[in-house]
Design a protein around this nucleic acid. Structure first.
Lengths: 160, 160
DNA sequence: CACGATTATTTATAGATATGCAAAAATGTT
DNA sequence: AACATTTTTGCATATCTATAAATAATCGTG
């Protein structure tokens, strides 16, 4: 229980199994396991492990491990272009706070899924049928803004 | 560009599209977009949005959004929201006369059915997809009123 | 519109985290 | 082993973030 690798493993284990809210807490847990280090070192360890701190649902904060592929993708930032929507897009039109996207039969669900995934700011939500997507627009966004955002994931839309 | 919801959306958009390393930076970007707030408020916003701060691969720190269900599950640790598991309800948000209710996949139909059954005064109609319900609100009902009525049949909604 | 209740915000500050620098270990090289 | 090189660490502190308390704004209802 002496070298750095062991310590890193211990940190991962503790964070995975307990709700740790700050470094002092974690330091105590580590000390209880025979690891003697300072907050400065722990800060560097957490940086190296890419541990993240976020709000928990109970109002406190909690450290989390980057264990999921999705999370990893996010931590690397800039990931948008990886998977663009295959073509299936047919048309888009608007009525007040609703956009209606027509697709080729069967494509609505997939495209709606992709739109949802991207969490575009003007998009409150989507509902898909077989060849139609209803998209609810957030307040204070123009139709044009919606279109612009959608174009980042549905390039075919640009030529319209 | 004035209310809190707009600001939260702006924060999400900025974080999704830029590499933000601390709150002062984000504050400047928000100010450039016409949002005037203090670091204290921003800290609370980030807490509410469950934005996480983690190390980036280039040695700096970066804020990330909890955009994936997987990530959300992680942030909640092992105490996976029993509420949601039980009812299927995930979230509710509004845009003018539409309420959008997010559910766990497959639950939308069931919950929409329950809502219809109750004939709540503010509810004109519902349409359900797989994990989303669009609820059309009758005129002269506030968002808050809708929420209160729904809470009578979806108690889990209260914690939001 | 006025009042009570809730939500949002600021200020001031406490609390938590990151880091420059120097020292100490560890590792590698001849 | 002696020396150079790289890695790890602690100390002290700067930087960054969260929050209590007070105030302001907003909402819902009579």
């Amino acid at each position: 229980m002496k070298n750095k690798q062991n310590r890193l493993n211990a940190i991962k284990f503790i964070i995975a199994n307990e709700r740790i809210g700050n470094q002092e807490e974690l330091l105590k847990r580590l000390y209880a396991q025979g690891f003697d280090l300072t907050q400065a070192t722990l800060s560097r360890d957490l940086k190296q492990l890419k541990v993240a701190k976020t709000a928990a649902s109970d109002g406190s904060y909690i450290y989390i491990l980057p264990s999921s592929p999705l999370y990893k993708r996010i931590t690397k930032g800039k990931l948008v272009h990886e998977d663009q929507v295959r073509s299936g897009f047919v048309s888009i039109s608007f009525s007040a706070n609703i956009a209606v996207i027509k697709t080729r039969p069967g494509y609505a669900g997939g495209i709606a899924y992709d739109i949802d995934e991207h969490d575009l700011p003007p998009v409150l939500a989507t509902v898909a049928g077989d060849d139609t997507i209803l998209l609810v627009i957030r307040e204070n966004y123009t139709h044009h803004a919606v279109k612009q955002h959608l174009e980042t994931i549905i390039p075919e839309m640009k030529i319209m």
